Simulated assay, not measured.
Amino acid sequence: MLQVTNLTKFFPVAAKTPRWMPGGKQTQYLHAVDGLDLTIQPGESVGLVGESGCGKSTLIRLISRLLEPTAGAILFDGVDIGQIPVGDFSHSAQRAKLQMVFQDPSDSLNPRFTAFDTITEPIRRLGSKQDQRRLQQRATELAQQVGLPPELLSRFPHQLSGGQKARVGIARAIALNPTMLILDEPTSALDVSVQAVILHLLADLRKQMNISYLFISHDLNVVRLLCDRILVMYLGKLVETGPTDDIFNHPRHPYTQALISAIPAFEANPHRIPLTGEPRSPINPSPNICRLYGRCPKGDDGCQQAAPNLQPINDYHQVACHYPAYPQ
C-alpha cells in the first residue's frame, strides 16, 4: 500500500554569523527526516512512536504531501506521489485514497461548518458531483457508521462534545472510502473514557473497510492496542521496527527499552531505564556517530566511529544498534 524509500527532509538553519563576514558559516541543515525507509501493507496498522522532536510530524506531512521532500520516493498504491507537487496533490485522484485524522478534534474542524458540511466537504471536492439529497443520505450513512446520532449533523463544532467532534473528523476521513488513514494522535485531546470508545471505533472501521493505518502516538498502550507493527523513531532515523508483541516483550534497541520502561505500571518499584545526558543536535549530525551516543548506556568508542544501520534480527524484526539486546 505504501512504500517509502530513502525519504529525507532537511530544513535550512540560519547561520549565526553572516557569510560575508570573516569566519562566516555556510548554511546548516536540520535533519528532520534522514534517509528513512518504511512499508505498510494493505489492511495493516503500523504505529510510529518516539519522543517529541524525533521527526514524526515531519514524516507524516511528507507522506500526506503537505511538504516537499529533500530526497527520496513515496509510492502509494503503485504511484510515486512524491513526484506530484504539493499544490497539485490536493486535486489528484490519490488524495481521495489517503486521508488524515488530526490530533485535536476542535482545532481541525471549521467553526463555520456544521457537522454535515464537514463530513460532505471531501465528497464535494474530490468525489463525483451529487445532489443535496444524495449528500444528505451519504452523511447520514457515515454518521451512523461512526456512532454519531444523525440529528447532530446540523450542529456546529461548539455545540458538540469532544467525542462527537472526534467522530465527525473520522467520518470526514472515511467519506471517500480511502485505502489508508494517517492518524496523528487522534485521541490525545479526549477524556480517558472517550479515548477507549474512539479506539474501539477505529479498530472496527479498519476491519470493516480493510483500511491501512499509520498511527502516531506518545501513548504506547494505545499503540499496543491498535497496531500490528511498530516503528521506533529517534532524531530522524528509525532505530527499531517489528511486530507489536516483539517490540513490547523483547525490545532490542536501548532507546526502545527506555521507552517501554517508561510506561506507567502498578509495580511498587518499577524498573526504569534512564537515558542520561542531552540529545545530540539534529543540525548537520555526523553520519559516522550513532544518534543515541552520549545517552545510551551501552555506548562505547565504536559507536562514534560507525553509525549503525537497520539490520534484521529475524524475518520481521530490525534494529539499528551495534549491541542489540537478546531475549534471556
Rank of each mutant, 00 (worst) to 15 (best):
L66T: 10
F76Y: 12
V86E: 08
I174M: 13
H91E: 11
Q103M: 10
G78P: 11
T118G: 00
L48I: 15
Q103T: 09
S92M: 07
D104F: 03
E44F: 15
S90V: 08
Q83L: 12
R133Q: 13
S161R: 04
D88T: 04
L59W: 12
Q83Y: 02
L75H: 13
T58I: 05
P85F: 06
R133H: 09
G127E: 00
A71T: 00
E51C: 11
A166Y: 03
S106Q: 05
T140K: 12
G78V: 06
Q159C: 01
E51I: 09
V49C: 09
G163S: 04
I81H: 15
S64E: 00
L152Y: 15
S154L: 08
P150L: 11
A71P: 01
L148V: 07
L153M: 09
R65D: 09
S45F: 15
S92T: 04
Q159P: 02
I123A: 06
Q41P: 06
Q99H: 04
E44A: 13
R65W: 09
D80W: 05
L48R: 05
G43D: 11
E68S: 14
Q94V: 04
Q132Y: 00
K129M: 07
F113P: 03
L48P: 13
S106E: 07
R95Q: 06
P122E: 02
H91Y: 14
R112G: 09
R167I: 03
S161Y: 00
L59G: 15
K97N: 11
R61I: 02
V79D: 08
S128T: 04
L66N: 14
K56V: 08
G127D: 02
T120W: 01
L59T: 15
R125A: 10
L67W: 01
S108M: 05
G72N: 05
L75D: 14
E44C: 14
T140A: 08
H91A: 11
P105W: 02
T118C: 04
G147V: 07
P105Q: 04
S106W: 14
P105E: 11
S45C: 15
S92P: 08
V168T: 06
L109W: 01
P150K: 11
A175V: 06
P122D: 00
V46L: 06
Q99R: 11
R95T: 00
K97A: 12
L48Y: 11
Q130M: 14
M100W: 00
G127S: 02
F76I: 07
S52W: 12
R138I: 05
R167H: 03
I170R: 13
G47T: 05
G53D: 14
D107T: 14
E151G: 10
D117C: 04
A139S: 03
S108A: 15
T120H: 02
D131S: 04
G50C: 13
M100S: 01
L148Y: 09
G47Q: 10
Q132C: 02
I119K: 02
T58A: 10
L135T: 01
C54D: 12
E51K: 11
T118Q: 03
S106V: 07
T58E: 07
V146Q: 08
P111R: 05
A96Q: 07
T118Y: 01
P85K: 06
R125H: 04
L153K: 01
A171Y: 12
E51P: 15
